Simulated scan of single mutants.
Amino acid sequence: MQEERFSKAKFAAWVGIIGNLILAVAKAGIGVIANSKALLADAVHSASDIIGSLAVLLGLKASQIPPDPEHPYGHGKAEPISAIVVSIILFAVGLEMGYTTIQAFFAPITAPGMLAVYAAIISMGIKEWMFRYKYRVGKELNSQAIIANAWEHRSDVYSSFAAFVGIGGAIVGQRLGVPILVYLDPVAGVFVSGLVIRMAYRMLRESIHSTLDVVWDEEKSKGLRETAQMVPGVLQINELLAREHGHYVIVDVKISVDAQITVEEGHRIGKQVKKVLMENFSNVQNVFVHINPYDQVGEDDISYPPLHKIDTADVIEKDGPILH
Results as ranks from 00 to 15, higher is better:
Ile89Pro: 00
Ile81Asp: 00
Val93Glu: 03
Glu128Phe: 02
Asn142Gly: 08
Ile89Thr: 14
Leu39Glu: 09
Leu90Val: 05
Ile33His: 07
Gln64Tyr: 04
Ala120Ile: 00
Ile51Asp: 04
Ala83Asp: 12
Tyr118Asn: 02
Gly125Phe: 01
Ala34Trp: 02
Gly74Met: 10
Phe106His: 13
Ala78Ser: 11
Ser36Trp: 07
Tyr99His: 12
Val93Thr: 15
Arg136Pro: 01
Pro80Ile: 06
Ile89Leu: 13
Met97Pro: 03
Val93Ser: 15
Leu40Thr: 12
Gly125Arg: 02
Pro69Thr: 07
Ile50Cys: 13
Lys139Pro: 05
Ala62Trp: 07
Ile122Cys: 12
Pro67His: 07
Leu57Ala: 14
Ala83Met: 03
Ser143Ala: 09
Ala41Glu: 14
Ala43Ser: 15
Leu58Tyr: 05
Ala41Arg: 10
Asn35Asp: 15
Gly52Cys: 10
Asp49Pro: 09
Ala41Gln: 06
Pro108Val: 02
Leu141Thr: 02
Thr110Lys: 11
Ala41Val: 08
Glu140Cys: 02
Asn35Pro: 04
Lys127Ile: 00
Met114Gly: 07
Ile122Gln: 04
Gln103Tyr: 00
Leu115Asp: 14
Lys77Phe: 08
Ile89Tyr: 13
Gly76Tyr: 07
Ile122Asp: 01
Ser87Gln: 10
Pro67Ser: 11
Leu57Lys: 04
Val86Leu: 15
Ala62His: 09
Ala83Pro: 11
Lys77Arg: 10
Ala62Lys: 07
Gly113Lys: 09
Asp68His: 05
Asn142Phe: 00
Val32Asn: 05
Gly29Cys: 10
Asn35Ile: 00
Tyr133Met: 14
Ser123Ala: 14
Trp129Lys: 01
Ala104Val: 08
Thr110Gln: 08
Glu96His: 09
Gln103Met: 10
Ala43Lys: 04
Lys127Met: 09
Ser63Val: 00
Ser143Glu: 07
Pro69Ile: 05
Gly125Tyr: 02
Glu128Gly: 00
Pro112Tyr: 01
Thr101His: 13
Lys61Thr: 06
Val86Asp: 08
Met97Asp: 03
Val117Pro: 11
Ser46Tyr: 01
Leu40Pro: 09
Met130Gly: 05
Ile89Glu: 06
Gly113Ile: 06
Phe131Val: 04
Ala119Arg: 03
Phe105Tyr: 14
